[in-house]
């Protein structure tokens, strides 16, 4: 009887100590400030620019002259290239990132803005942003368009309010963490693509 009571007391004490210990760990982890000001500045437009908007450029509205002016004065950008190589009045504007660029883009990361009839239609930026960080900042995408090919999966997460698409491509049969750590490309668009699935079970799409 005494032995049983003694054993229970030890068990209870151990459980209590472990509970306190793990609570402390979790509190410490959660107490760390989540620093996303750079990501926020990159993805979320300023108050005076209605979405879709990036650095003052609005798909469907900003003309090529406006784009060139905005990009040339942007401290993140060093050189701007205008490419109108088509028999139609459309083409690309590309840019090189400067040393003052945010860390969410790499110096040699590709990008381009597509214009047609001199108006911005959409623009694309290759980033170092993890899909998980986009999710933490903007929440769950409103819907996904999933494309499976061979043993890879391409995920387009569509944000209706921001009028942007977060897209990434990863091999199937990886751990769930690969989804959260996938580096994304961001596309700001004039018109959203057709609605896909609202299910966030992305791993299942690989099966």
């Amino acid at each position: 009887m005494i032995a049983k009571w003694f054993l229970n007391a030890i068990l209870l004490k151990t459980a209590l100590i472990l509970t306190v210990l793990f609570t402390l760990f979790i509190t410490l982890i959660r107490a760390q400030p989540y620093e996303n000001s750079e990501l926020r500045a990159f993805l979320i437009p300023s108050d005076d620019c209605i979405s879709p908007c990036w650095q003052g450029i609005r798909p469907g509205e900003t003309d090529v002259f406006g784009v060139m002016e905005l990009l040339k004065v942007n401290k993140w950008i060093s050189t701007v290239f205008f490419e109108n190589y088509s028999t139609f009045s459309n083409g690309y504007i590309r840019w090189n990132w400067s040393s003052l660029r945010p860390s969410v883009v790499s110096g040699d990361g590709s990008n381009n803005l597509w214009f047609d009839e001199n108006i911005t239609q959409n623009f694309y930026v290759e980033t170092q942003i993890h899909f998980g960080d986009v999710w933490l900042l903007l929440g769950k995408p409103d819907w996904f368009n999933i494309h499976r090919s061979y043993n890879r999966i391409r995920v387009d997460g569509v944000y209706q309010d921001q009028v942007l698409i977060v897209t990434f491509d990863i091999p199937c049969y990886q751990s769930v963490s690969r989804f959260w750590l996938a580096k994304t490309d961001i596309v700001w668009v004039k018109d959203l693509p057709a609605e896909g699935t609202r299910s966030d079970n992305l791993v299942a799409s690989c099966r």
Partner: peptide, 21 residues
């Protein structure tokens, strides 16, 4: 269509089989 061969790869909106445009 016309075929344009560029010096650098280009991007646009992610392709979907749904030709809603």
């Amino acid at each position: 269509p016309e075929i344009v061969i560029n010096s650098m790869p280009a991007a646009g909106m992610p392709y979907t089989t749904n030709i809603e445009f």
